[in-house]
Amino acid sequence: MSRLDGPVPFRGGGFAPRDRAWAAAATLIGVVALWQAGASAGVIPTLFLPAPVSIARALWALTVSGELWKHLSASLIRLAVGWTVGTLFGIGMGLAVGLWSVLRSPGMALVSALFPIPKIALVPLFIIWFGIGEGSKLATLAFGVFFPTVIATAGGVDNVPRGLIRMGQSFGLSHAAIVRKIVLPAALPAILSGFRVTSSIAIVLLVAAEMIGAERGIGAFVLSAGNLYDTDNLLAGIVVLSVLGLAVSWVIGRLERLFLAWRA
């Protein structure tokens, strides 16, 4: 028989990770500093991976010459239009699939069949359908954004607590009022989570579409720099894409704070 004699050991800590902003910044700065040090010391061949300082210089030159804005503005317009169209149709279809039995099975069958197709593989088809101009690029983006939005929205609608809908019915709210006041707000967290996924997909498809038959746009610029072995500008384009992704993520974060303040 064993005997216990002493203070009760504490066993309840851990499993509560916290964000530390300084650690995130320090990691990024550390990686860039190491990269710069390796390039300056000749450990990293700058022909293939230019030093951060060279990339910054190239970025500055592109900004001053107006070249960066020429490409970035074209990309931003495509991204905004393509993502918005795909999102609006996706939310509409997701709500329809989530709310009406008549559309549920046919809609989900189509989504399940078409969603797994890599959208990049459809770019040549869209060029045949919509021409080499803006139409094919916007269609690629919209098509790529549409399916995940349908899935996120329909999932959000499916997860609306039935009790809340029943409450709305018991108060005599119309079908439209229940959708507007209960279903949509309850599905909003899922829809906004979907935005995070679709914005990333949209940037990937944007670059891919711009690499095929575009004169302007960050994707076209990166491809052109690569063809010329101009790795400074190539990396500068990639940095711009990274910043674009961060900016989009920040905007979605603000939207979440604005519309989902009740969850805080």
Binding site: G163, M167, F171, A186, L188, R263
Partner: peptide, 18 residues
């Protein structure tokens, strides 16, 4: 009267976003 037969629910059924 806006709703003649009106429920009060066991789980309150409040809308958390309002």
């Amino acid at each position: 009267c806006l709703n003649p037969l009106t429920y009060v629910f066991q789980d309150f059924s409040l809308l958390p976003w309002r």
